[in-house]
Write a protein that binds this DNA or RNA. Structure first.
Length: 853
DNA sequence: AATCTGCATGCGCAA
DNA sequence: TGCGCATGCAGATTT
């Protein structure tokens, strides 16, 4: 091994023993230290992926001389040879019979070394006496060149733009006499010129000797992230790692230089320096930036990064990613996880453009392992590879499952890829796709700026880190200001239309069966068909249920119950009769029950403070329900649970362990016991169920019904026994909750059942007076319905609303067949569709789905 | 039998 | 019309 020269122009130590070479574990990359000045020369984090020999060097395949991996401390430069293995650039040159191959558009498997070669070509074109051969590209001369360059400009070659790259592309041939240096924009000076003021290089100057030509050297030498993960103004791939770009570069050589610099950038995010050097405000936590995509400053060509991959990252996120204030975060791209990405296969499909721009160039399908940190600073190693796909490639990150799970990501969530400078490390962040309840994207509806839970749900991306995301359903639904409010409409999860989610669809996908219970309405005009199951009538609808507007139920101290709804137009809260069911969209003008408040101009009936309290309580209730739902899901779906869930969640419902966002038009492979909508559908997939029907649906319904009835009888007998024994369990004989916190209004109780229970009418749970089957009722609910509290405040009512479910879940193991179904205990009623209708709707929907299937 | 791996297929978008 | 990419699927491998 020859000696090295410190690239620090003030040092330039040359004695090799003074160098310490080793792994900089802190940064995760290979680093070389100058013991003289302490300069650290980082090589790419990918250095280690090149299967270095123990000492970090390797031998040229052809001449046998030692060559380094290519990091900045390398004395010898190497290239990957088309024939396989590595060779010093001279050998590679000889083999190719071209000292600078990149001019020829190589095969798709052209390897990384081009950048270096091009640089060298440029160096030569600068008439710098820098020789390139196996015996060493003398770093001293390179240093001179560096100095010369830096004298000329503080120009950073390395993080140059695509434009730079393309410029290089066009001049990579050292013998290319058509590329004059200097004017004309082709030569190296031009390159430098172009880079002036653009590169972050100068910014990094403070980072020490890692900058300057070293950086250039390193970056160019490295087919690495470090180079390609350049800042906004820089090319993602100055080293022209991928073919095709060469052609572009050639074309662009015809373009005036400055224009090139502007035009030839493609994949890069927007000038990041401003946004990415964490602003002081952001650091102070002053500003919560909206999620604004940072598109490439310029973009053209087929490799242009599509907007959906533009990183949307706030300064807060940047700060979080960077951790220390000296770091510069360079957002690279982001991707919304598809079902496949988030699935168990553990493969994340990388956008080709992004992969080719920001990840190391790979020539073998096997790819290379790369290390990526997550926001917790945990380092993951993934296999970055590709599959041949038609005549193209499909890039994937393999082995991401642990990371995905660690970050609790699911389909629909977003992963962001950034680079931390100056370390050059890849960082993986994430944003959770979260249901947020707003009405028509009204940004604020309550005095405190809260967003009321409404029926118009959609997916937004939230920026907080994963650990802040406790539940899939936004637990702060009612209060948390959204970072971004997006208009009601489509949300694109990924590219495929299959994953486009409209607001209602988002609701359907994300809102649980439990939550959906509140919102179910029978389809307008839909008339049920009565089918007999176990001698009970079940109303079956051809049309699936629709979602109505969510309302809140309260009770006055007098015990009088009220229903409140929020106007979708003015956001004011209006009192409604208890029995009223609202359509998904409702405004004051629809308030036919209160002539004084049938206009948005009418003042609020309740004071803001009360509303806030109301919503706090509502939020608590929501949290509770979310928790309950979680518990319920852990219990696992079965039978009718799966039916209902399937109906609400769609095809993915069968896999409750998986996120439901990853809807697909096709169903994954079925497994024994699969309760998905496809597997559970009636054999024929069509037609009504006869009393003797033995399809899965009917069998499940029957089984569930039997279970319910058994439990009901058991509970009833227990209650009777207790009453008979005169045991006072602390429950008032009027049936009210012992602690009195359980309000009149059970959380999901329908209006009618509220009314009935309020009137002290003990409903025959599970069966209506018509003998109709109400599977939404559970025998255990008897005691709850018996609880008839006396007058309580609105808040306590809402607060107490969350309790029955908890109780319910404890008392039985019905899983998801819980509170939602509970809510409709009234059976036949004048308000919401009775539970059996809903069940029937589910069945109907299943049938519909079955038809489709 | 379950899981992994690599490739094929087809949809949807962008040029 | 071509490309990117989500995902299906079959063969290989592991449990």
């Amino acid at each position: 091994m020859g000696s090295k020269i410190c690239m620090n122009e003030k040092c330039q130590a040359t004695t090799s023993p003074e160098w310490k070479k080793g792994w900089d574990l802190k940064s995760g990359g290979f680093a070389t230290l100058c013991s003289n000045c302490g300069s650290t020369y980082e090589s790419s984090v990918f250095c280690e992926t090149f299967h270095l020999e123990e000492d970090g060097w390797r031998k040229c395949k052809l001449c046998g001389k030692h060559i380094h991996c290519g990091c900045i401390a390398s004395k010898y430069l190497h290239d990957y040879m088309d024939s396989g293995g590595v060779g010093c650039i001279s050998c590679a040159k000889d083999v190719d019979n071209h000292s600078m191959r990149p001019v020829e558009i190589p095969s798709d498997d052209v390897l990384h070394g081009y950048g270096r070669l091009r640089v060298l070509a440029n160096l030569q074109s600068c008439n710098v006496d820098a020789t390139i051969d196996c015996n060493g590209f003398e770093t001293g001369k390179l240093m001179q060149l560096s100095n010369a360059i830096e004298e000329n400009q503080h120009s950073p070659f390395p993080q140059c733009q695509k434009g730079d790259t393309n410029i290089s592309n066009g001049q990579v041939k050292p013998d290319d006499k058509t590329h004059p240096t200097g004017e004309g924009g082709i030569g190296f000076p031009s390159l430098i010129q172009q880079s002036v003021g653009q590169s972050r290089f100068s910014n990094l100057g403070s980072s020490g000797p890692t900058l300057g030509l070293e950086d250039m050297y390193e970056s160019v030498a490295q087919p690495s992230l470090r180079f390609s993960l350049s800042t906004s103004l820089c090319s993602p791939n100055p080293i022209l790692p991928f073919p095709g770009e060469v052609a572009e570069g050639k074309e662009q050589n015809k373009v005036p230089l400055l224009q090139q610099g502007q035009k030839t950038r493609h994949i890069l995010p927007k000038p990041l320096k401003a946004g990415l050097n964490i602003s002081s405000e952001a650091k102070k936590g002053k500003i919560s930036q909206p999620l604004i995509a940072r598109p490439p400053a310029e973009g053209r060509g087929r490799h242009q990064l599509l907007p959906r991959y533009w990183p949307r990252i706030t300064d807060e996120e940047l700060q979080q990613l960077s951790g220390d204030l000296n770091s510069t975060i360079v957002p690279l791209f982001e991707k919304v996880l598809s079902a496949s990405d988030a699935g168990r296969i553990g493969r994340l499909v990388l956008p080709k453009a992004c992969a080719e721009a920001y990840f190391p160039r790979i020539s073998q399908s096997e790819g290379v392992p790369i290390r990526i940190q997550d926001i917790k600073r945990k380092e993951w190693t993934f296999q970055f590879r590709f599959w041949p796909n038609n005549n193209s490639r499909m890039y994937v990150l393999e082995g991401i499952t642990p990371c995905i799970q660690s970050m609790q990501l699911r389909a629909g969530d977003t992963v962001t890829f950034s680079r931390i400078d100056p370390e050059g490390k890849l960082v993986m962040g994430c944003r959770k796709a979260t249901i947020v309840g707003v009405q028509d994207a009204q940004t604020s509806s309550l005095p405190n700026g809260c967003h009321s839970g409404e029926t118009s749900f959609f997916v937004v991306n939230e920026s907080p880190p994963p650990e802040k995301h406790g539940g899939r359903i936004n637990k702060d639904l009612l209060e948390q200001p959204m970072l971004t409010l997006e208009k009601k409409g489509t949300q694109n999860i990924g590219k495929s239309k299959r994953l486009h989610i409209h607001s209602e669809d988002a609701l359907e996908l994300q809102v649980t069966w439990l939550e959906a219970q509140d919102l179910f309405r029978s389809s307008p005009g839909a008339k049920p068909t009565i089918v007999m199951i176990e001698n009970h009538d079940v109303e079956e609808y051809d049309e699936p249920p629709v979602f109505g507007k969510r309302t809140l139920f309260t009770a006055q101290a007098s015990g009088e119950q009220e229903q409140w709804a929020q106007c979708d137009s003015c956001s004011k809260w209006r009192r409604l009769p208890m029995h009223v069911l609202l359509p998904p969209r409702w405004t004051c003008s629809d308030n036919i029950w209160d002539s004084n408040r049938c206009s948005c101009s009418a003042p609020d009936e309740i004071i803001p403070k009360e509303v806030r309290s109301l919503f706090r309580a509502g939020k608590d209730s929501k949290k509770q329900r979310t928790t309950e739902n979680k518990v319920a899901q852990e219990l696992g779906p079965s039978g009718l649970d799966a039916l209902g869930t399937a109906a609400v969640l769609g095809d993915n419902a069968g896999d409750l362990g998986e996120h439901s966002v990853g809807a697909t038009t096709k169903h994954p492979r079925h497994r024994p016991g699969c309760t998905c909508i496809v597997c559970i559908q009636p054999p024929s997939g069509k037609g009504k169920h006869s009393p003797m029907c033995v399809c899965n649906v009917c069998k499940t319904v029957k089984r569930r019904f039997k279970t319910l009835m058994l439990r009901k009888k058991k509970r009833q007998s227990e209650l009777e026994a207790e009453v008979a024994q005169g045991k006072d369990l602390g429950m008032p004989k009027d049936g009210s909750e012992p602690d009195g916190t359980l309000g009149h209004t059970l959380p999901h109780m329908s209006h009618s059942e509220n009314e009935k229970s309020q009137n002290g009418i003990l409903l025959e749970v599970g069966e209506t007076d018509k003998g109709q089957l109400d599977l939404n009722c559970h025998p255990n609910r008897v005691e709850e319905i018996l609880t008839e509290p006396t007058g309580l405040g609105m808040l306590s009512l809402v607060h107490g609303a969350s309790r029955p479910m908890e109780k319910y879940l404890k008392q039985n193991e019905l899983g998801t067949f819980g509170p939602g179904l509970l809510s409709q205990a009234g059976g036949e009623n004048e308000g919401r569709p009775p539970a059996d209708r809903r069940l029937a709707s589910v069945v109907g929907k299943l049938q519909d789905k079955g038809d489709e299937g």
